[in-house]
């Protein structure tokens, strides 16, 4: 899921005035799981606004804010949304840009989107995938060095690993040591030496349009 963190409240406050009617949009998807765009998060931020002489006209937690159809359906009929003078989006950037399609009002980004996260447990999320568009993990023991090696090296480690840790952050595992240890379990460490991965093609599409016949419902 998309991992988000909330921006500083004071920065959000500065973008509003006491004349504004603020409408807050949350998301029941990833941002609710991160507790950054959930109803609870919205209520907390609404309270903070009120304490700072701001008017919150209403809020909505969209089922999936990144779906333009959902944003349209759930917001356009909402009277409080129609009366608002400014929108605060507690969604990822994809969500904000679905909301942008249906309003000309100023939208304040309430969250920073960080990465596509793998959940270890509630509240602990790791970036294991960069959605680079050219997955190579079938050649790297299921562990992505593009994302998890600090230098994104795909043909093996640099000389900076010490006791399995990365030279950049001694708390962080060296991705290549993880790959090596995993391959050792199947006696296949030579894959590291014998597999050459050519320079990656980093051009990837910005949109995908499937033909109707290819979509299996």
């Amino acid at each position: 899921m998309i991992i988000t963190v909330q921006k500083n409240f004071s920065d959000l406050l500065m973008q509003t005035t006491d004349k504004d009617k603020i409408f807050i949009v949350g998301c029941a998807g990833c941002a609710t799981k991160c507790n950054t765009g959930s109803e609870a998060a919205i209520l907390e931020i609404e309270e903070n606004f009120k304490q700072n002489n701001r008017i919150v006209s209403g809020f909505a937690v969209l089922d999936t804010a990144c779906d333009i159809r959902v944003a349209k359906k759930e917001l356009i009929k909402n009277n409080n949304f129609s009366e608002a003078t400014i929108i605060l989006a507690l969604t990822c950037g994809a969500g904000i840009q679905a909301i942008e399609k249906i309003t000309d009002l100023k939208i304040i980004a309430g969250l920073d989107g960080l990465f596509v996260g793998t959940t270890e447990r509630i509240g602990v999320y790791n970036q294991y995938c960069s959605t680079c568009g050219q997955c190579i993990v079938d050649k790297t023991a299921g562990i992505c060095p593009v994302t998890r090696c600090s230098k994104g090296l795909i043909n093996g480690p640099c000389g900076g690993f010490v006791n399995g840790k990365c030279e950049v952050d001694q708390e962080k595992d060296c991705a290549w040591v993880l790959i090596y240890e995993k391959l050792k379990k199947t006696n296949s460490v030579n894959i590291i030496k014998d597999t050459y991965l050519p320079p990656r093609n980093i051009v990837k599409p910005k949109n995908i349009i499937y033909k109707k016949k290819d979509i299996k419902q």
Binding site: N155, G156, P157, G159, G160, F161, V162, N163, G164, W176, V177, Y180, V189, N190, I192, K193, Y196
Partner: peptide
């Protein structure tokens, strides 16, 4: 190219050095 004789695990560093030699 460079290598680090003090890296641990050393076997991984040696695999990498061999790969550089082969390159």
């Amino acid at each position: 190219a460079v290598a680090n004789p003090t890296a641990s695990p050393l076997d991984l560093q040696l695999l990498m050095l061999e790969k550089k030699i082969n390159a």
